[in-house]
Each structure stands twice: as structure tokens, then as C-alpha cells.
């Protein structure tokens, strides 16, 4: 068959795929923003802020995407883990105040990593409890899942208010991560670089687990066809618990990172982030870690560019982005299940 007999659209699509396909979208978005913003240093600052924000949203969204994809569970309580992670992280940072704010960079980082670890472990344990008590009785029933997880979210937020009070809590930022570095006229907050790198490390770790281990193989298979995984002799319920714990732990880690980024947190932190997290999961494609990363980067970049260009459109821009992507690809950009 000659090249000319292949429809133009197919040839164009194949050409785009050769250069990275939909993974190019953040680059295209950044290019459009560069043209609209006009000032390279402002554009670079916004781009790095967007990437860092995207990575923190990725931490919260990736677990939810796997929970949706593998367990078919609509967990509207996911944001409770981000909130809990933020408060546990902030509390540990406050306990380790001398380490965190002192002049020793190693102790600064150790304090932050301990806070993140505490939040992550708390998220995993809370996730185990949540799955056993709240989710397990309502598997296969989406309506009840929505009702019970929204109810659990309200209870969790009230518990946070009971324990930490209603006043906003300041989050000490480690001394080594405060301030900015200036490179080629571009000012970048150090904390954002750290957030980006941590997100990248988590993504690479998740990628390796999912693509290089038998556990990852089982999870990817389970996202596609739970029943067949069971018919091959694997206990999918054990996989569910593990994935739910991992997803909750990641949300708590993302919450702790977001707390440090914001500097001041309230019990509504998780709920406020949840809209963006759901947008990421939907546009990325259910059950897909690559999709979550791509969606999170798009959402982070879009939020920062639009907040600078048309501040009133900041949240609406991501809604419009989701609508545009769903019209183009109804199953998201990189869905785990190949139809």
C-alpha cells in the first residue's frame, strides 16, 4: 500500500506517536504559554511552579487512579488521606522544630523526610482500616460507595477539626528548602525543585514496580480484568488491600508535601485539592500511572499559566481542559485498559 492511500489523519497520528504522542501535550502547552506570556524568565518560573504543583497532585492522584482502575471503587474519601497526611506531616515537623529550622542542612532534610515518612505510614495504616471497614462492605455497589465515602470524608474532616482545631496551622518549612535560587535570571523556589524531584522519584519507583515485578504485572492485569486474575489463581482481595493502602499512603505523602508548599493548612485542604485530583484521574485515564503523571503535569502547568494570564479563569481552565480531552479521547489520554 502506498503512503498516499493511508488517510492523512492516520499518517499524522502515526507521526505524532513517533515523537512521543500525547506525552508531547505538556510541551505543546508550555510552547503556547511561552508565546502568550512573552517574557522568558516569567515563563520559566511559572513552568517550574507548574511542574512542581503537577508532581504533588500526581502523588495524590496516582493512588486514586489505581484504586478506581483496579478495584472499581469510587472513593470520594480519598482527599481525607491527603488532609490527614498534611496534618500528620505538619505535626511531626513542629515536633522536630529544632532539626527543621536549625542551621544543619542534613538535620533539616532528615526532619522533612521523617515527617513525610510519618504521613505516608499513617496514610497506609488509615487506608487499611478504611478499606476493611468502609469500602469492603460496598464492593460492586457504586451508589453506596459514593454515599459511604462522602460520609467518611465528612467524619474524617471533623476528626481533624477535633484534634487540630479549626484555626489554620502554620507548617514550618525546612531551612535548607526555604528561599529561591536564581539561574539565568529565573528565580525558582527550592521547595518546588524538591517537590518535583520527590514526585519524579515516586513515579520512577511506581513505574518499576508496575513494569518490572510480578506484583506490578498482577496489578496491571487486575485493572483490566479482575475476574480473570482470580481464574488464574490469584487472590484479588489481597491485591485490593495492598493497592488501597499504597494509594492512601501516596495521597498522604502528597498532602504532606502540599502542606509544606502552602505553609498554612486547614481541614479543607484535601477537599480543595480533590477537584484537581479527579480531573487528573479522568483526563489521564483510569488505572494508568503514566496517564496520571501526564494529567497532573497538564493540570499543574495550566493552573499556573492561566493564573498568570487570566487569574479569574484558573480553575475553570482545568475544567475546560478536561472537557476538551474527553471530547477527543473519552477514556482519557492513556487509559490502562486497551479497547
Amino acid at each position: 500500500m502506498s503512503d498516499t492511500s493511508i488517510p492523512f489523519r492516520t499518517r499524522m497520528s502515526a507521526g505524532i506517536d513517533r515523537f512521543g504522542g500525547v506525552m508531547l501535550l505538556p510541551v505543546v502547552l508550555a510552547f503556547i504559554a511561552f508565546v502568550l506570556i512573552g517574557q522568558p524568565s516569567t515563563w520559566a518560573t511559572l513552568t517550574i511552579a507548574g511542574l512542581a504543583m503537577g508532581m504533588m497532585i500526581f502523588l495524590m492522584a496516582s493512588g486514586l487512579s489505581l484504586i478506581f482502575g483496579l478495584m472499581d471503587v469510587l472513593n470520594f474519601g480519598h482527599s481525607a488521606f491527603a488532609t490527614a497526611g498534611a496534618f500528620v506531616g505538619a505535626t511531626v515537623l513542629a515536633w522536630l522544630g529544632f532539626w527543621v529550622t536549625g542551621g544543619n542542612p542534613a538535620l533539616n532534610l532528615a526532619g522533612l523526610l521523617l515527617a513525610i515518612a510519618a504521613a505516608t505510614i499513617f496514610g497506609a495504616l488509615a487506608g487499611w482500616f478504611f478499606e476493611r471497614v468502609v469500602i469492603k462492605p460496598v464492593y460492586q455497589d457504586h451508589l453506596r460507595q459514593i454515599l459511604i465515602t462522602v460520609g467518611a470524608l465528612i467524619v474524617a474532616e471533623e476528626l481533624v477539626l477535633l484534634i487540630w482545631g479549626g484555626a489554620p496551622i502554620p507548617v514550618p518549612r525546612p531551612a535548607v528548602l526555604t528561599g529561591s535560587i536564581v539561574f539565568a535570571g529565573v528565580s525558582v523556589e527550592i521547595y518546588r525543585i524538591f517537590a518535583f524531584l520527590l514526585g519524579l522519584v515516586v513515579y520512577v519507583a511506581m513505574y518499576l514496580v508496575l513494569n518490572r515485578t510480578r506484583l506490578g504485572l498482577l496489578i496491571r492485569a487486575g485493572v483490566e480484568n479482575r475476574e480473570m486474575v482470580e481464574a488464574l489463581g490469584f487472590r484479588i482481595d489481597r491485591l485490593f488491600i495492598l493497592v488501597f493502602m499504597a494509594g492512601s499512603a501516596l495521597a498522604a505523602m502528597g498532602g504532606a508535601m502540599w502542606a509544606g508548599y502552602q505553609g498554612l493548612i486547614t481541614a479543607a485542604l484535601g477537599s480543595e485539592m480533590m477537584i484537581l485530583v479527579f480531573i487528573v484521574v479522568i483526563i489521564g485515564g483510569l488505572g494508568s500511572i503514566q496517564g496520571s503523571l501526564l494529567g497532573a503535569l497538564l493540570v499543574g502547568l495550566m493552573a499556573n499559566y492561566v493564573a498568570f494570564l487570566v487569574p479569574k479563569m484558573a480553575l475553570a481552565s482545568n475544567m475546560l481542559l478536561m472537557m476538551a480531552i474527553l471530547l477527543w479521547r473519552p477514556y482519557g489520554l492513556l487509559p490502562a485498559v486497551k479497547r
Binding site: 504485572l217 496491571r220 492485569a221 485493572v223 483490566e224 480484568n225 475476574e227 480473570m228 482470580e230 481464574a231 488464574l232 489463581g233 490469584f234 487472590r235 484479588i236 490502562a336 485498559v337 486497551k338 479497547r339
Partner: peptide
């Protein structure tokens, strides 16, 4: 349970073949 039955040495090829398309 299905996994226990499978582990007894029974394999199942469903009507829709049960192939994992993304793998």
C-alpha cells in the same frame, strides 16, 4: 473461591477469552 479452585489444577478459558490487552 475461584483462586482456590484454579490452584487445584483447573484452568478456565472464558467466552471473551479473558486476554489482558495492555500486557
Amino acid at each position: 473461591g475461584t483462586p482456590d479452585i484454579a490452584r487445584l489444577g483447573i484452568a478456565f478459558v472464558p467466552e471473551n477469552m479473558g486476554i489482558f490487552g495492555g500486557l
